[in-house]
Simulated scan of single mutants.
Amino acid sequence: MRLISKQAFRQYMKFRGMSNADLAEASGCAVSTIAFLRSTGKSSRDTVGSDAARRIEEALNAPPGSLFSATVLVASSYSKHAVA
């Protein structure tokens, strides 16, 4: 699941008065996962598994689907290798 908006995520945490450690404990996620979702630097990330996304939204009392959306991966069978 992909985080829709880092800004909205941080605002939910601020509104609920939760630190990274608070949200990690309430959601059963690692503190580093929450920190990676909040950060904007090179170490940031914006995806988590569907179960973690659900638990984070529940811990923040956010409506389902308001912070995370499904990630669609596209695979191609096209190959650049020449056939001899």
Rank of each mutant, 00 (worst) to 15 (best):
M13N: 00
Q11N: 10
G49L: 09
D51Q: 09
K80R: 10
M1L: 04
T47A: 07
G17L: 12
S39V: 02
S50R: 12
S43V: 07
R54F: 02
G41P: 09
L73R: 11
E57T: 04
A52K: 13
I4C: 00
N20M: 05
S44Q: 03
G41L: 06
I4W: 00
S19G: 01
A26Q: 05
S66N: 04
L37Q: 02
M13A: 04
A30S: 15
T71E: 01
G65Y: 03
F36C: 09
R54K: 14
D51K: 15
S79H: 05
K80Y: 08
E25W: 15
A8S: 10
D51H: 15
D51G: 05
A8K: 13
M18R: 05
M13C: 12
V83S: 15
V74L: 12
S76T: 14
S69H: 04
S32G: 13
S44F: 06
R55Q: 14
R45V: 04
E25R: 15
Y12A: 07
L60T: 00
V48R: 01
M1R: 00
S32V: 14
E58I: 09
F15K: 15
D46W: 06
A53D: 03
C29F: 03
I56M: 03
E57G: 03
S44T: 13
F68P: 00
V72S: 05
R10D: 06
A30T: 11
S77R: 06
S66A: 07
P63V: 13
A84G: 14
Q7D: 05
A82Q: 14
A30M: 13
V83M: 15
A62D: 04
T33V: 09
K42P: 03
A30E: 07
E58F: 08
S44V: 02
A62K: 03
N61I: 11
A53T: 02
S66D: 06
L60H: 05
S5N: 12
S27Y: 05
D22P: 09
F9S: 00
M18Y: 09
A82T: 14
V31A: 04
G49V: 03
A75D: 05
R16Q: 08
L23W: 01
